[in-house]
């Protein structure tokens, strides 16, 4: 053999890395073509002019981005801020934040409950949390819709009990969207919280009680800070999909209470303003990106302080 062992080793290592690129090529290619690659086209489209019947005209235009923030009056051409868009963005953020808070309020005690069960029971409780997570999101939304519609079970029961005298309109309200999103996203909060709580050293709580802490103090000063990483992870896992919800507001909001997702869809459907839709999409991605950055920074801090 002409090659020395060192050269052979180097050649073998190079071949190994080449093989590893070849092996990952199908996955990378698939995701590039049918996953994230087309996002670049969305960015491109946001700078083009709208076509008459949907699609785009191939000329540069800032109208798409202009329309995200401003509205031009059809009659007198005056320019004003796009109040409709801002209110939808604001509603989306409000609803997503509300969902996150509600998920935390219900998710934390649930995760705590599971984490304090005897070890062999935990996986059963955990499985009960994950089942809804893996069942169809549309079906779960539909189930909520049935429950809260005007002639639905909740109204029927309340009427029978005499609590109310006429059915309450719950469906097609912001409350319905909030309820649906909390219901659908709750497991995403419980799972990371559980992961943190499971690692919690209960001797620390013992120590806190020993040092005269009340139950409330133990919760706020010991448990919550220790599970902060899980709380942040869960919040981000709930906030991001909640913010970009499309199906839930469509089914439970009834076409009037729009969120960003529905606004985007509108531009590609009836609105026939693809550049505006593309610009709105890019805006949504940017908001999500900022939320992620916030998470990465805070997760880093929380991780660091737990060691300090």
């Amino acid at each position: 053999m002409a090659l020395s062992a060192a050269q052979a080793g180097e050649a073998r290592q190079k071949k190994d890395i080449r093989d590893r690129w070849l092996l990952s090529a199908p996955a990378l290619l698939l995701i590039l073509v049918a996953g994230v690659g087309p996002l670049l086209i969305v960015v491109l489209y946001s700078f083009l002019a709208p076509g008459s019947y949907g699609d785009v005209k191939w000329e540069f235009s800032s109208q798409g981005w202009f329309n995200v923030f401003f509205a031009r009056d059809i009659f007198d051409d005056t320019v004003s801020l796009a109040d409709a868009h801002f209110s939808i963005f604001w509603r989306s953020i409000k609803l997503a934040l509300g969902t996150t808070v509600l998920c935390a309020i219900f998710g934390f005690p649930t995760a705590y409950f599971i984490a304090t069960r005897p070890p062999h029971n935990r996986s059963v409780w955990l499985f009960l949390i994950t089942i809804p997570f893996w069942t169809n999101m549309l079906i779960r939304t539909f189930a909520i819709q049935e429950l809260i519609r005007t002639e639905g079970i909740i109204n029927s029961v309340l009427l029978k009990l005499g609590v109310i005298s006429a059915p309450v309109q719950m469906l097609y309200t912001d409350f319905a969207i909030l309820l649906g999103m909390t219901y659908v996203h709750l497991p995403l909060m419980v799972l990371p919280l559980y992961a943190s709580l499971e690692k919690l050293d209960f001797r620390l709580i013992e120590a806190a009680y020993d040092l005269y802490a009340s139950r409330f103090n133990v919760l706020m000063k010991v448990i919550v800070p220790l599970v902060k990483p899980g709380l942040i992870a869960g919040s981000i896992l709930v906030f991001i999909p909640a913010l970009s919800s499309y199906v839930i507001p469509r089914v439970l909001g009834g076409g009037k209470n729009l969120m960003i997702g529905n606004l985007i869809e509108l531009q590609f459907g009836q609105g026939r303003n693809w550049p505006l839709g593309a610009a709105l999409s890019v805006t949504l991605v940017i908001i999500v990106l900022f939320a992620m950055l916030y998470y990465v920074r805070n997760a880093g801090k929380a991780g660091g302080s737990s060691h300090g």
Partner: peptide, 27 residues
């Protein structure tokens, strides 16, 4: 490139589904 591969494979989890849907519609 290994970290890049890892991040790229998980990227579909991060992009809002509605945005991916719109992008695929256009493409």
């Amino acid at each position: 490139g290994m970290t890049f591969k890892y991040a790229f494979i998980n990227l579909p989890l991060l992009v809002p589904e509605i945005v991916t849907a719109v992008a695929l519609l256009i493409f």
